[in-house]
Design a protein around this nucleic acid. Structure first.
Lengths: 204, 204
DNA sequence: TCCTAATCAGACGTAAACAG
DNA sequence: CTGTTTACGTCTGATTAGGA
């Protein structure tokens, strides 16, 4: 019998990721390229699960080459320049939230939050690109609150009325429809359910 | 009998080390190191399937060390190759019915998602990729959990009701019918039996 | 300050992996 | 194959924190 009880060192997800990211510093490009919402920080596409995301980041992302080579430069010490790139790369959008004022901790890390120009030509008519990247700049989490606007809310509510517990696939559809990361949509549904439950309404 | 105290959420040592070590050592190289014919570009050995090949490239290839140190140079060349691979990678062993049945059967690592047009019109069917691959990607042992959808589950259950212990041949039939790897179907039956047994039901 | 999006910790179900 | 464990994916309920 091999009971487990062995390695249950309860490491929280947070700690875990923290450690991973610090332990692997510049080398964990693949995982670092994946945002919490399972979207690729490089090309923006999102995925249904972590596996897919990793797969993508490891070998499918069309932007992989640029980044990996960029990483080479990074290692040589051009971290600063890259940072600039990343900064300047924040054009567009009326309500651009401004940078979390330079919170580069200890020395210049070569962190792969290379959000270089993502071509903004996506999708002619759904013009709002709501890409959010909440970076984990070397372990530091920046919580980015996405703003859901009325029109998007309407869509969400409509879907919610029909089915308050959409499966991943439906979430994906909705996410795409309103131009939000899947994760955000998922969270919205979770919170909506919580709200309703709290107020005694039953979820269908 | 019931002896598991629920340890989810906590990260096991295994997982932890796995992730750390893999994170610190590999990126796209492994996959790029595999030739079209499933042979290792480094040591030349060939493999029966992609999974094995990846495993090799990630972990086992004797020449791995030299490569990882030199990967900076290799990347460029290999990265290019990667894309070719992606293109040519249209594995279709099974019957490729182009049915509107929303799921694609086996399918593999890279396809459509690479080319990925953001704005695909979603008419009646959005050909989502619902697949599975049990790969050991880039040293990241990502256990891929295949998602069985309702409709597939129905088929499985139907077969299970008739015969909970299908032979290899029957498994194959079922697998093909729902577009799943045989192994996954087999596992499902095993788990189903286990579940039933656990709950006291007898298996016919 | 309030409303609520995001996060955390924990629990559950189950596909996959492992031991025998 | 069975019995058991591991780990992925998702959910809840409580909490934290962003912005009007």
């Amino acid at each position: 019998k091999k009971m487990l009880e062995s390695v249950n060192t309860s490491v929280t997800k947070h700690q875990f990721e923290e450690t991973v990211s610090s332990a692997s510093q510049g080398f964990a490009l693949d995982s670092a390229a994946i945002a919490d919402d399972l979207s690729c920080r490089l090309c923006g596409s999102t995925f249904r699960n972590r596996s897919e995301a990793f797969l993508h980041a490891c070998r499918q992302c069309p932007r992989l080459p640029e980044v990996t080579s960029a990483k080479g430069h990074l290692i040589e010490g051009l971290a600063a320049r890259l940072h600039e790139l990343a900064e300047n790369q924040k054009p567009q959008r009326h309500q651009q939230r401004q940078q979390p004022s330079q919170h580069i901790s200890q020395s210049q890390y070569m962190h792969s939050r290379v959000i270089l120009s993502r071509d903004e030509e996506r999708d002619a008519d759904s013009g709002h690109i709501v890409d959010d990247e909440e970076t984990t700049s070397d372990g530091k989490k920046v919580r980015v609150r996405s703003h859901i606007r009325e029109e998007q809310l309407i869509v969400l509510r409509a879907h919610y009325a029909i089915n308050p517990q959409p499966k991943k696939e439906e979430l994906l559809t909705i996410a795409e429809k309103i131009g939000f990361p899947v994760r955000a949509v998922q969270v919205w549904f979770q919170n909506a359910r919580a709200r309703d439950r709290r107020e005694g309404r039953s979820i269908t």
